[in-house]
């Protein structure tokens, strides 16, 4: 798959001397959903701001759709729609006027049908004549997405799109992003909600202290780092583990009523079949069993801790 954004050896030091990005290299593939994860102050917003033209880079090179963001900024920027983290909106404009303004600003001729479609997709159509100041926070967030989509971008940046948005609206937003991906739009989102990345992303990048510490397919990441747990609820209390079960490193707790087995999904053999056989041989019977998988959140936390 060809890359639509290419970031090479990008560094950013602010006037204050603070280095926000250190030698970041990153390729975003055309048509993917890329989630950029990182704790507060990791450099996510700085990276997006540079790619979109809001901040200047210190060293390195960034190209969008093959166009250098400095020397060929018009072509580069016209491909991008940006939804920043903060709710920056005009107060007294109507929804229709502000979304139409964005389209004009990006040099696109008027197209009321497209604006209508965008507003309908984002459930804003009945608010088109409302002034923005009258809208709720969630609606303002959608207005900002509508502005970003008004000029039919090939790339959409969503900086913390669902921060402070209720559960229902968040799900609605995921649907919108899913539809955009189906329409061929490349989506780059930063998020604090790991669930969001887990739910939507094709690939995940983790940034910490201005450095990219990992870029991986989500599925591979989950497989590589994901560990599973098998939990067995026993029928009868077990005082101690028999010696035959020692190699499994089982954990016996809940007052002798629960056995937990950790295994690696990456391994060729999980050892579950053998364990169940040995349990049966030892006369241990169970009434229920469940497995749980490590979430991306666990992976993320362990990665960030390791790099700290």
């Amino acid at each position: 798959m060809s890359s639509i954004i290419s970031v090479t050896h990008l560094s950013k030091t602010y006037g204050s001397g603070f280095t926000a990005l250190k030698d970041v290299s990153l390729d975003i593939r055309r048509g993917e959903i890329f989630a950029l994860l990182g704790p507060n102050g990791a450099g996510k917003t700085t990276l997006i701001s540079i790619i979109c033209g809001i901040a200047n880079l210190s060293t390195g090179k960034v190209s969008v759709g093959g166009h250098d963001i400095n020397t060929d900024y018009r072509a580069a920027r016209s491909l991008i729609g940006l939804v920043p983290q903060e709710l920056h909106t005009d107060a007294f404009e109507t929804v229709w006027a502000t979304v139409s303004f964005s389209r004009g600003l990006f040099g696109k001729p008027k197209n009321p049908a497209h604006i209508e479609k965008v507003l309908k997709d984002l459930s804003l159509w009945d608010k088109k004549d409302s002034r923005i100041i009258e809208l709720s926070g969630g609606m303002k967030r959608r207005v900002m997405i509508a502005k970003a989509l008004s000029h039919e971008p090939q790339i959409l940046f969503l900086d913390e799109p669902t921060a402070g948005v209720d559960v229902e609206l968040r799900k609605g937003m995921w649907e919108v992003i899913g539809r955009l991906r189906d329409a061929g739009v490349t989506v780059i989102l930063t998020t604090h909600y790991i669930e969001e990345a887990e739910q939507m992303a094709d690939r995940i990048g983790v940034i910490n202290k201005g450095e990219i510490i990992l870029i991986e397919e989500k599925a591979t990441l989950m497989r590589q780092l994901g560990r599973k747990q098998l939990t067995l609820q026993l029928q009868e209390r077990l005082a101690a583990l028999p010696a035959t079960l020692e190699p499994y490193r089982l954990i016996l707790d809940d007052d002798g009523m629960r056995l937990t087995y950790n295994y690696d999904t990456q391994g060729e053999r999980t050892g579950i079949t053998a364990l169940l056989g040995d349990l049966s041989n030892a006369g241990i019977r169970f009434k229920d069993l469940s497995t749980t998988q490590n979430s991306l959140e666990d992976i993320f936390v362990s990665l960030v801790r390791r790099s700290a």
């Binding site: 979109c52 033209g53 809001i54 920027r77 016209s78 940006l82 920056h88 005009d90 990006f106 040099g107």
Partner: peptide, 14 residues
Amino acid sequence: FVGTIYEILSAPVS
């Protein structure tokens, strides 16, 4: 002041 300048800066305008 209100932050909407982001849009002007990110637009393909000189």
